[in-house]
Design a protein around this nucleic acid. Sequence first.
DNA 1: GTGGGGTCCGTACCTAAGTACGGAATCAAG
DNA 2: CTTGATTCCGTACTTAGGTACGGACCCCAC
Lengths: 156, 156
Amino acid sequence: MTAGLTIGRAARAAGVGVETIRFYERQRLVAQPPKPEGAGVRLYPADTVERIRFIKDAQELGFSLREIHELLALRADPAADCSDVRERATAKLDDVQRKIQRLQDIGAALERLIAACPGRGGLHACSIMDALTHHSGDGGTACCSNPSQTTKGVHR
Amino acid sequence: MTAGLTIGRAARAAGVGVETIRFYERQRLVAQPPKPEGAGVRLYPADTVERIRFIKDAQELGFSLREIHELLALRADPAADCSDVRERATAKLDDVQRKIQRLQDIGAALERLIAACPGRGGLHACSIMDALTHHSGDGGTACCSNPSQTTKGVHR
DNA sequence: GTGGGGTCCGTACCTAAGTACGGAATCAAG
DNA sequence: CTTGATTCCGTACTTAGGTACGGACCCCAC
């Protein structure tokens, strides 16, 4: 069993900064390993690196740190109140499935957008909003009316 | 064609606060309708309500306002550089598909967690991290070792 | 055994995305 | 035509999630 990684190596392995790990420790999202007797430096198990990666992943999927903490706290062991764990896990699963559904809608809209691009004829969809809302096939030319609101200087 | 909604009604329809709409206007995420000649109040088309809903949805899926602006700016009309639009749309689509993949992994892990709950025998998975990492079926009892890091006071 | 990098810890600072505030103007119901 | 709710606009404040800084300490290679 390898002893573990120093915080710097752990951070590099997880793709975050050292300060981020410390921040997560303060938020109790990851456990702070004990400092060895007398003096020395804390060593992080590979486990923690996985945990941090999960946190970053979940964050990109729109979960807040609080929600991620709830996800990580879910554990099915016979010593816990199973019906409670089931309930919370089921709620999270619903959440996840709703997100998947919406992403699939957006994905389909993007595909329509891509397909409509060098249209040579039809020109069915023009913006994502169009592709999402009146996504019914055909419809002829009733699209691309007001070409305002394009890219022009957002955020500084 | 209905004239439109006042900012308050539009906000209620979109499920956000008035101040949020004004904030989005400042960020150029939604267009500010013109104030009628002389005096009066701005009227928002139903269109804008849809747009705001989309923004909120996309945000829950982990897109930043900047990314959402990019998504909304994508439009396939023959007057635009199609290869550029295709490229950006394809990149966004990849993004979306990666997110779906990761959500499906998490969903599967949650399902394993739920299934393992009133285990009566096996007890295969215990935390999401376990269910995500050594998710191979069977394996016997090597699970649920250290029940530390449970729920105990995060964020005030 | 010393020099340079890494760790430790506390505090300060930063960006994104709102949210609240306050005073003037405007609208709509009675 | 008053009164109460909205709108309008600018500026200030807040919260989440980090990031940076500074001084003390530690550890490893030379």
